[in-house]
Amino acid sequence: MAKPRALILTGYGINCDYETTHACDTVGFKAYRLHLNDVLVKPEGLFDYRLVVFPGGFSYGDDLGSGVAYSSKIRFSRSENGGRLYETFMEYVERDGLVLGICNGFQILVRLGILPAIENSYGEQQVTLAPNREGYFINRWVELVTQQDNPSIFTRGLGRIRLPVRHGEGRLLVPDEELLQGLEQNRHVCIRYCDREGKPTQSFPQNPNGSQNAIAGICDPTGRVFGLMPHPEAAMTLYHFPDWTGMRERANRCGEELPTKGDGHAIFRNAFEYAS
């Protein structure tokens, strides 16, 4: 059987495209890096793929706020035959397509209103990813706990995981209590920042940006569109962990099990299994 194809978008300052492509290849996809402008030429090309990834990066330098300019490009641009990429993209989602937005990609999906789309309000920006509460960019490994029974196909079978965050604008804010309830009750929340005991937390630095309800990643109502601030593609192997030399040493001495994969692997693997 032919491998399912994954499309990794790039261009305009997306910068995690190489490792995201590699991550997709690693779990079994046939992955393609494509510049947004090459997709714009023929948006129907999207239907050739089972997974579309909006990788991390600094599209347009976060100049008007993270993801604002890139999402405007998707929203306003027309292809050479006059069609809007945005509409083709929504059709792709409806036709059982998978979409993953990581960090800047998550910010883009939120600005486009593809996430969270509470009560199917696709196209309307319902939440935001604001500047971190501490006010600056942060690179740090965080612990995350998966919300059980969430519909995202990407987080199936996941429990506690460790991934790195690397962002200046990752603070998930919801405008009011009603939407927050909608987000929670309709099970949009997939992963949360947690403390050593696995409890969601508002404390810095375990919750590195001050997100409401410690939310780190959310999905749309179908569970096929998933966005998160942490970087699963940067946690694919043992050697991505910040303390892997210590893990290796302890495994050598006392037979502690040494993982060969990082915790991000399962997220891509889940997408592959759904797609194939």
Partner: peptide, 23 residues
Amino acid sequence: IIRRYDHEVGGNAVLKPLIGADE
């Protein structure tokens, strides 16, 4: 300073500037 500099983008950094379980 280190934490404000992305030290793992590219997915190739295997020893980063902060090390140990608590970095």
